[in-house]
Design a protein around this nucleic acid. Structure first.
Lengths: 237, 237
DNA sequence: GGTCAAAGTGTCAAATAGCCACTAATCGTA
DNA sequence: TACGATTAGTGGCTATTTGACACTTTGACC
């Protein structure tokens, strides 16, 4: 086979390939509410609307999609969120005026305090209470993406303790239970909740207590097998 | 704002955008085995290796990623599989020699018989027993993708009756149980299995029976709310 | 009619989950 | 220092779900 034949046997890309972006639905828990990080778009299309943090893959900076989402999240928050999981990939001809586009979406969780100051310094980024998302006009199909991320998060709150990543390093069980309740949208049974936590064996007692009013609560921390960053691929508890 | 300003405020795509492909892991059940549809690559790169059915998005033919995966599957099987669900999106700099690439992957299930003749007519497509996937040298990261799809399918077999889509329209519960057992790789308790099926209320008794040896078994069919094609987005049972 | 083989059921024990009342620890105040 | 208010955490009962396995049913074939 000569070079000419070799090249013509090559599987070529479509001429006008779709746009590829990566977007993240970053949740946190603050002031008793579930909040989502949104960014005000400074460019067309959809300039001025609120959108998910994200952007184009950088062929030079990124080796993988995870690199891209982490890079984008660090730009806005100053840190790498401890929990990042791929959510779903939305793609189609009509979701972006510029033409066929694909966005690989991630769900991420972070403690509010660890990125509070950095976010304040980024003029266009804001924590928006999840309840208020429906009242904003979001760019593209980002509202649908947020709803989808929330549905998944509800499943996590029911069957896992993943929502703990939305809290600071040390937290109490009543705090964690409240995060779950806010996510699910209804109260949970204290005893059942604690049983689940125990059986999962993912939290460790720090020995410390925190008291506000009433009996002081035990402070727990996530058991860190592995490093401090969790990339999750599947949905089992 | 004049047109010049407008255009420069536009959020432009990266010059050399990643390749975007869609791939499908299509499972079926035949001769007591779980099988995966593979296609022999006829073009470089990876020419001659076995690969997942899939290909580039067509900006003219496809309105969505689902259109793309369905189009590709119909090319190979002659029909639209009754169950198609997005699996995961793999992307990175090094998974394809041609450069940065992204593949949006789907899991699909189909009855063997409905596409048997068409697949035989497509020279390059073959059903490969899942057990033998490890012994083949697959193109790109397709082996990893198949393993990932299988892990998810195991979860489905444990908590849902999705594997029924790998059987013909009418099937018996012992048959379905065997499909589940083959997927999971270990035997299931007959009573527990039947209880789960009943509670799901997704199967209907056709009134017919099928007998081979021993007591004849009741034939069931999936309850078809909606049309005949299932696109699933989330992972709840 | 008896026997074989596989389908399908009855039933009991074990594990799990929901519920709610009770006890425990701390603070403020009389 | 005792007592009430308040929130953390536990005991223990009941209801539901799951696993296990023996038993019954049905039809085929001799």
């Amino acid at each position: 086979m000569n070079e000419q034949e070799f090249l013509s046997s090559y599987d070529k890309r479509a001429f006008d390939a779709p746009l590829v972006t990566v977007d993240a639905v970053l949740f946190t828990y603050h002031e008793g509410q579930l909040k989502v990080l949104l960014v005000k778009r400074s460019a067309h299309p959809e300039m001025g609307k609120w959108a998910l943090p994200g952007g184009f893959v950088s062929e030079t900076e990124d080796r993988s999609l995870e690199d891209t989402v982490v890079r984008k999240l660090r730009e806005k928050t100053g840190v790498i969120p401890p929990y990042v999981e791929q959510l779903y990939t939305f793609g189609g001809r009509d979701r972006d005026k510029r033409g066929w586009s694909v966005t690989v979406c991630y769900t991420a969780l972070i403690a509010h305090q660890v990125c509070e100051s950095h976010i304040e310094s980024v003029a266009d980024a804001r924590w928006i209470p999840f309840d208020r998302v429906g009242k904003l006009e979001l760019a593209f199909d980002h509202e649908e993406i947020i709803r989808f991320a929330h549905e998944r998060l509800v499943q996590k709150a029911l069957y896992s303790i993943v929502p703990a990543y939305a809290l600071p390093e040390k937290f109490t069980l009543p705090e964690l239970q409240h995060v779950h309740e806010v996510i699910i949208g209804k109260p949970l049974q204290k005893k059942s909740f604690r049983r689940r936590i125990e059986q999962a064996e993912l939290l460790v007692d720090t020995g410390e207590k925190r008291s506000e009013t009433g009996r002081p609560a035990t402070l727990y921390r996530m058991r860190d097998d592995s490093g401090s960053h969790t990339f999750v691929r599947n949905l089992e508890l």
